[in-house]
Design a protein around this nucleic acid. Structure first.
Ligand SMILES: [Mn+2]
Ligand SMILES: [Mn+2]
Ligand SMILES: [Zn+2]
Ligand SMILES: [Zn+2]
Lengths: 138, 138
DNA sequence: CACGGGTTTAGAATTAGTCTAAGCATAGAT
DNA sequence: ATCTATGCTTAGACTAATTCTAAACCCGTG
């Protein structure tokens, strides 16, 4: 932790600023698939005067620059995911929380047979309950 | 076409009305995965005085009764799907249109190996381009 | 120190969806 | 045939998520 986020942003063509580093330091290290509202509330703890517009701007900018991915799995909520590599998702039906499933944990076959669909990417969305064993990181 | 939608609704525990039959006759027969706004505009052509609230109410009611499914795949738009059986989805990156992939066209393996995740359902979301062959029904 | 480009800000605007309260339709009772 | 209760429909108000706007701000360069 405590990486040099200003440097990281610069490397990805994002001009660094205190606000952007604050957003990045949270959103690029969490596994909780936060909404923009969640990002805002987390970042405000350490940077109380940051505005909502800056949070949205920064999240969209990081997404355009490939540091972040955003997707909508439930309801009307866009969530942000710093895991930009291929992976699948598990949604806990009880809590709505989203967990990553490593790419290699599942295999999808017969994708070549899709006829008129030319596949460029895909992922599996799994829904269910978390087994009762104590939950660890998600 | 021109099925008895009032009868169909009754069979599913939905008290029929002219508005509900109008919504049902469109949304239960289309394959275009429409948004609520799209449903409203289509239904208004044949039933110009129907209100937005009635369209939303009916779509939510049909969903509760199991005649319709709703999901969010892209952007912030909930779409409605009269195909309530298991199936996968293909999203055309160019147009955003959503197409059904029959359940048996794909196979997902190793779902039993997901450890702490207890799977109750899943589906594959595939994205790509539609091959140039003339498009048929989606 | 002034300039200028990019960044941040608060709040207005927009969009999707829900809620409200009044009016309407109709099945059943008389 | 009329009455009535229940449920349906309606317009518009409201809410929540997100984007837009325009002014203020920051900071490196001249
Ligand atoms: Mn966005
Ligand atoms: Mn809904
Ligand atoms: Zn993820
Ligand atoms: Zn479908």
């Amino acid at each position: 932790m405590n990486r040099d986020f200003a440097g990281l942003l610069k490397e990805h063509g994002v001009q660094p600023s205190a606000q952007r580093a604050a957003v990045a330091s949270y959103v690029l290290t969490t596994a909780e698939h936060p909404t923009a509202e969640t990002v805002w509330s987390r970042v405000k703890k350490h940077f109380p005067m940051i505005s909502r517009a800056t949070v949205y701007n920064t999240l969209n900018l990081l997404t355009r620059k490939g540091l972040l991915r955003q997707f909508v799995l439930v309801d009307g909520k866009t969530v942000f995911d710093a895991n930009v590599g291929n992976h699948h998702h598990f949604i806990d039906k009880k809590t709505g929380r989203i967990y990553d499933i490593p790419w290699d944990a599942l295999e999808v076959s017969r994708l070549e047979s899709l006829g008129r669909f030319e596949v460029s990417d895909y992922h599996v969305v799994v829904r269910g309950r978390l087994k009762s064993s104590a939950r660890r990181r998600g």
